[in-house]
Simulated scan of single mutants.
Amino acid sequence: MQGYEDLIRQELWIWQREMQSSPGFINRLSKSWQNKVNSWIPEKVHQAVTTTIKQMIRAVLFGAQYTSPVPLESSSFWAREAAVKERIDWYQKTASVEGAVTGAGGLLLGLADFPILLGLKLKLLFDIASMYGFDVKDYKERVYILHILELAFSSQEHRQKIYQKIEHWKEKADLLPDDIHQFEWRAFQQEYRDYLDIAKLAQLIPVIGAPVGLVVNYRLVRKLGNTAMNAYRMRLLQ
């Protein structure tokens, strides 16, 4: 058991270094171009997208807290991680099938992939939080879940800022406002959308959309699962 924790601490250290690393040239160039594109989009469109994503996520956050497993309390660290990895694998396969089906349908079904995949990701995060022993009915735990989503799907520059927010979370959580409306929804939706734009664009193309959706969704959920595991390891091992 001690050997397993030593291995996990090493993996966590590597992940923490990655979260705090400076943006590379390609990352800075990509972010600069996306910022330029966003500047061409009318403010009303930004506001509409922000409101839509906000309401969509709040609906999932409210519903998922009642369908997630009861927090595990007595399991060993190894047993928790084994259960978490099995759950991530299940969501990867589910997201792959969903991506293949919507990708095969071309533009219209491809657009439906966005809210469906987002719902799967959030439900996965609720399940993982519960398996690590955290109560997702707590509002502050749901904010932590949103930060994990940001860590997984943001530019490196934004990722650094979010990592600083979740580091030493117990102290940071005490300073949170009690209203989720004060969450930085605009930055959240823009970073999330910008990250997925390139990865998901080919899914809208007929014929190749199905295999692209299958592979991309599988990898996105795997990335989210790995991010969540390390984010909760950081809290449990501190």
Rank of each mutant, 00 (worst) to 15 (best):
W185C: 07
Y195Q: 11
T102R: 03
I116A: 07
A79N: 12
E184M: 05
E167L: 04
A48S: 12
I53C: 08
A104V: 01
S154P: 08
L176N: 03
Y195T: 06
V212M: 02
K165T: 05
F77D: 10
I148E: 05
L120V: 02
Y132D: 12
L7Q: 11
P69I: 11
N38P: 04
P211M: 11
E18F: 05
S155M: 05
Q189P: 04
I26C: 00
Q55A: 13
K170P: 01
R235H: 11
Q92M: 14
Y91A: 13
V97D: 00
Q182S: 09
G225Y: 02
F77V: 02
I88Y: 00
Q16H: 03
H46P: 13
R17N: 05
L176H: 11
W15D: 01
V45T: 14
N226E: 14
Q34G: 05
R222I: 00
V70F: 10
L237T: 06
Y91H: 07
Q2S: 15
V60Q: 08
G105L: 07
L175I: 06
K36F: 05
K170M: 09
R142A: 04
V136E: 09
I205L: 14
E167A: 08
M1R: 13
G110K: 02
L237M: 15
I116R: 00
R80N: 10
A210M: 04
M131D: 02
E81H: 13
H168D: 14
W185I: 09
Q34T: 08
T94K: 10
L201S: 13
E171S: 14
E86W: 06
K161M: 01
V70Y: 13
F62D: 14
G24H: 01
